[in-house]
């Protein structure tokens, strides 16, 4: 079978201690597209995302990124894949701006100062950029974690409920930004409970469920969210 996606997932079974948390997943995500992931609380969305990026070992099946099995310990994978999951942890002694600068410089970004300044403004962190993470609110820390995903180059972006802890304006802004980046060639996989976010960003949506994991259109997915 010809490989069509940047991310190829075949018969992937995810869970803990050998116990699957949902039905097996088979999906291909082509470069420059966005795949949304929906499902009720506890359905296994986060587990699927963590397995896709190699943080959890699959119970069965395969995940390939760019034709190679996923191994998050490899430098090449870390160069190409950026994740914002539920672990937005920071070094307590470094300010928000310093986290972003080190990330950008570590990825060899030219004009790192300007790139960081732009993202700091974009994510509404200008006044708090020089504060330590411990002095930021929960929402500001979320913004900082998201900003860190945009100050560096990446081919695949994996986000777990990116809209969480963000105000309505920031949600809309983030959705528009991700949609624009997808149009520019970025590949995105994200879990969400937000219908507006989903319909703005996703081209297809994976519905995670106990019985079967299926891929549907954003319109159908939004309807399912409203059920």
């Amino acid at each position: 079978m010809a490989k069509t996606g940047l991310l190829e997932v075949h018969d992937l079974s995810v869970g803990y201690g050998g116990e699957p948390v949902c039905a097996p997943v088979t999906v291909a995500v082509a470069a420059g597209t966005a795949l949304g992931v929906i499902g009720p609380n506890g359905a296994g969305k986060s587990t699927v995302l963590q397995t896709l990026v190699g943080l959890l070992p699959p119970i069965g099946g395969t995940v390939e990124f760019d034709g190679r099995p996923v191994d998050e310990r490899e430098a090449a994978f870390r160069r190409d894949v950026v994740t914002v999951l539920d672990d937005d942890a920071f070094f307590p002694s470094l300010t928000g701006a310093e986290h972003l600068l080190l990330t950008a410089r570590g990825h060899g970004v030219a004009d790192a100062d300007e790139v960081v300044a732009e993202e700091v403004e974009e994510f509404g962190l200008t006044e708090r950029a020089h504060a330590l993470p411990s002095a930021l609110s929960s929402g500001q820390r979320r913004r900082l974690a998201l900003a860190a995903a945009f100050v560096r180059p990446a081919r695949l972006m994996v986000l777990d409920e990116p809209e969480r802890r963000l105000d309505a304006q920031m949600r809309r802004q983030l959705a528009a930004r991700i949609a624009a980046d997808v149009a520019d060639g970025l590949t995105v996989v994200f879990a969400s409970h937000d219908a507006e976010f989903l319909s703005t960003v996703a081209r297809r949506v994976l519905v995670v469920d106990d019985d079967a994991c299926t891929v549907v259109s954003p319109k159908a997915a939004v309807a399912m969210l409203h059920e």
Binding site: R79, T83, D87, A89, F90, F91, T103
Partner: peptide
């Protein structure tokens, strides 16, 4: 302290294009 902080915040280590051992 940096190693302990990095262990507590593994996402920080993953943010750079550097293999886990590196």
């Amino acid at each position: 302290e940096p190693s302990r902080s990095a262990h507590a915040a593994p996402a920080a280590d993953r943010a750079l294009p550097l293999g886990a051992k590196d």
